[in-house]
Design a protein around this nucleic acid. Structure first.
Lengths: 163, 163, 163, 163
DNA sequence: TTTT
DNA sequence: TTTT
């Protein structure tokens, strides 16, 4: 038995971060992955894949990524069913992410403004903003994106960030 | 953009082979993949993942595999939506398989009957039964399983079998 | 950054289980994966992929699988280099397995002997032999294979088996 | 039998494009993938994974990506051996890529210079530079990178680009 | 109900 | 022989 999924695509909207009654963070998000071929009408379609991630990486996702962000997802397919509001059984399929990789912030290139001397080849770890530890009880931090505009990809696996 | 899925699990029922109006074969099947952990009640759950495969491999799947067969699937996640019979939009997620690998026939071990001298180490290609070319217009060949009882796995990628 | 590998193939020899100075189990093994196509001479080649697995799953692998066993591997590619015995730097690439799935014992079908009434459709968990807890200080248990002849696959992920 | 690899990482140097005697393009490249954890010394290591890609995508890779570019790779592991110059057999493992996805050009952000009105939300297909059809007999086009600075990722699967 |  |  083996169940492995890898995706690279863009968030269709900001991640939806919530907490269970017992205080565990869980974020739902949808990744749009453009198909590598065109349909008969000649245009490119996309698949919109529902994903969920738990605990620390869920908070990191909500704090650092937003609608349009390009992400890499490593996880597995999960199916479950529940009773819909109309009394009918609803079946759903989603990807449970083990880790999400930040490949490009929504606004990279857009906000870049002549920072000439910067690309001097030196490598600057981009974790200074990890100082301002995100409040786990606060859902989405709207201005967080602006503090790391894809200078370096961030891996938000569970053990990765120091908060 | 990247979208890759690999599954190993068992068919929950016989593959459902059909043909489009233009004569293209398409098979739908569901793979049950046991989760590698137990839930709070201490029992193992499974994910039931809908899959679809096209053309030659679809026919091969229907001819060689059946309910309970263990398969490997290599493909991608696809989402689509259509109008349900109750007028509501139905969203569905399925795996489009590029190839399906036959890992174990439903009845392996069950039908095996003391073929003692056989395991002599020699490797015998198990494709002799590909001679009896399956009829593509015939859906499921119930006794097909008995002609290849998992002595060697069969790969049913598109270019693989000579029919 | 993403690095994911999934393999299904056969062990080319018995797993090589060792222990580090600090007592951590590590098993090396090679998986032969037949290519899904033929070369110009018309014959099927295989890739021989070196793998390594650590801790409990390493012991499980050594205890339950042997030359010829079909396995599923989920892991990542790792490269490293060291000084060869001739003083030259040796570069090597191997797969570090997170989990290995037992898909078929070496001798399934071979040893099966008329257990006619068995295939009654019922699902019997095949973990009774996990009682006889393998001795971690003992490397390869040659007769272990005979106690589980692929009636059901065994997943040997870390948290999976109760020993 | 299943053999699937997915990588996201950076090119350690410009792709090395060559042509076989029969005129088939083949590019070799190495992808550095940072490990998602630190070693005992507390620093992050990387795996340097040798890859090869054939035909059109090989030319696209050489024309659009260079040292430092972030790429996504979908492929399989291949092993082969040959006689080294010292007469000893050399074994090598590499990833044969089916497709490579351009996730970030080497110089994105660096060269971005206040193009204020541009990020106006409109989607501009970034294939205008595909007009200047690359010469297949010319290896690396050093200034090609500057014509597509990661405004949009480019997929360089075989059937993807119109040249 | 979708991203770019 | 390595990227950022």
């Amino acid at each position: 038995m083996l169940n492995r999924v890898v995706l690279v695509g863009r968030l269709t909207k900001d991640p939806d971060l919530r907490y269970t009654a017992s205080g565990i963070a869980v974020a739902n998000f949808t990744v749009a992955v453009n198909r590598p071929f065109s349909n008969q009408q000649g245009d490119r379609e996309a698949d919109f894949i529902n994903c969920v991630i738990w605990r620390k990486p869920a908070e990191n996702l909500a704090n650092y990524m937003s609608k349009g962000s390009m992400v890499g997802v490593d996880g597995r397919i999960q199916t479950r069913s529940f009773d819909g509001q109309d009394g009918k059984r609803v079946f759903m399929t989603e990807v449970v992410a083990d880790s999400v990789q930040f490949l490009e912030s929504k606004n990279s290139n857009r906000q870049a403004s002549g920072n000439g001397g910067q690309g001097s080849g030196g490598y600057q770890p981009q974790n200074q903003n990890q100082q301002e530890a995100p409040n786990p009880n606060q859902a989405n931090n709207p201005q967080s994106g602006s503090s790391n505009d894809n200078l370096e990809p961030i891996d938000i696996s569970d053990d990765d960030l120091p908060f």
